[in-house]
Design a protein around this nucleic acid. Structure first.
Lengths: 232, 232
DNA sequence: GCTTGGCCTTGATCTGCGTCAAGCGGGCTG
DNA sequence: CAGCCCGCTTGACGCAGATCAAGGCCAAGC
């Protein structure tokens, strides 16, 4: 299970832009961590261990309300980073993180990262870019949750998640209940919404994890809230 | 209406940390812009003019859905920055901005800011900090909208907004309908919720813009969703 | 003074989605 | 193989909050 740290970093958008020399320096400060499926990586309120880069597997970042309801903020897939926010802003973890499946991460510990940042301008610029993407993504999620209804959210997610835009089938890389939580729906509502989209011919359900988009333009209209709820 | 740019920058968290010399350099690249009440500053999808710092007045940052529903992401009060995200991430404005009242802003145009960033490490570090605060704030807003009910959101907002935590009255610095939009409520629901909070003695309504928190601990419980909806 | 137009409040009604409950199927373990 | 667990689906029902409608209040303009 040896993980080549540099190989992971070079595939990650934030570190790809660095010179090879600098990337080697960063890699030298990093350690690898492995987590079996289901294991908690850190919890809300704990001091932040550092910046994580997912090498393989998937990590779920989520919050839990005192009432017990939980919300998935983000799924970190390979080459995506998480927890950098707390490192840079100097506060405790603002959410929980858990391995969805067996996962290997590269960890750059807080103090070492801060030290690298102080002396390294190129790294700073890269992280600025990474942070702005985070903000944009959060604004998008907020927009979904606040401005769209259930079918709008599902439609938009399908369009975002399908790289081929309907030419081929694509696989949902997570459990439906987790996707439902991310979109602030119950799994029941997600199930019903997908069924209606399939019944009206906008998508095709191949099996419980695979879909194909049949009418991208109409789905786009649903995502924008332009069609009536029954997508007549 | 002459505005001292340096004076504005030194009161702004992002620029306060800079050396006087560097701050003067930044100030030299900045221009001032004035906007009468109600004027649009920029719209979603436009190229981003640069980083704005509010010198006086208030700016509303908001999104509009195709259905017409709008959502207030943020109120920028004096010394707060906005639109830095689009500059740093190199994309178009992700939202609309409008002057809530007569407003003066300091604007550091996109190209000049990028140039300053390239050559200036200290500025980079400050902006990283600023961005992480943005992320944290957005996560907090998302948490409110997704995990709390109407009374929870209102209670939490009151607690966050009242600096004296109930020792003195405090004034709502915005219209109620804008606050309602920010919390993803209708103004009707906000109105009813405030009334119930007042009826049960948790807050006191002094007039339509002023409140006093009477029972901070109980209000905290409501914010956490621990009390039943009627706060018995 | 009167009128107009925003903003706010309050009551009555409606509805999208959550909640509860039951049933299905597929994968794991013994 | 049986038995179990867990994720998913489907239906019936309920509720928080949206929507609709009406009225009060205050400031600006004539």
């Amino acid at each position: 299970m040896a993980v080549d740290v540099e190989r992971t970093l070079v595939r990650c958008p934030v570190f790809r832009g660095l010179s090879g020399e600098l990337r080697a320096l960063v890699a030298g400060e990093a350690v690898t961590r492995t987590f079996p499926k289901g294991q908690r990586i850190f919890s809300e309120g704990e001091p932040c261990p550092g910046l994580y880069v997912v090498a393989s597997g998937v990590v779920r970042i989520f919050q839990i309300a005192p009432t017990g309801k939980s919300h998935v903020l983000h799924f970190a897939e390979p080459c995506r980073t998480f927890a950098e926010v707390a490192v840079l802003g100097d506060f405790d973890c603002p959410a929980h993180a858990e391995a969805v499946e067996d996962t290997v991460c590269v960890l750059i510990p807080t103090q070492r990262l801060k030290h690298l940042l102080e002396t390294n301008h190129q790294l700073c610029l890269q992280l600025l870019q990474g942070m702005s993407l985070w903000v944009r993504q959060l604004v998008g999620l907020l927009e979904d949750v606040v401005l769209r209804d259930a079918s709008g959210r599902v439609a938009r997610h399908l369009l975002k998640a399908d790289p081929s835009a309907g030419r081929s089938a694509f696989i949902l890389p997570m459990l439906k209940k987790d996707l439902a939580s991310h979109l602030n729906l119950t799994s029941e509502t997600l199930s019903r919404t997908l069924r209606r989209l399939a019944e009206t011919g906008l998508i095709e359900v191949i099996d419980h994890q695979q879909f194909r988009i049949l009418q991208p333009a109409a789905l786009q209209d649903v995502a924008q809230g332009l069609l009536p709820a029954e997508f007549a």
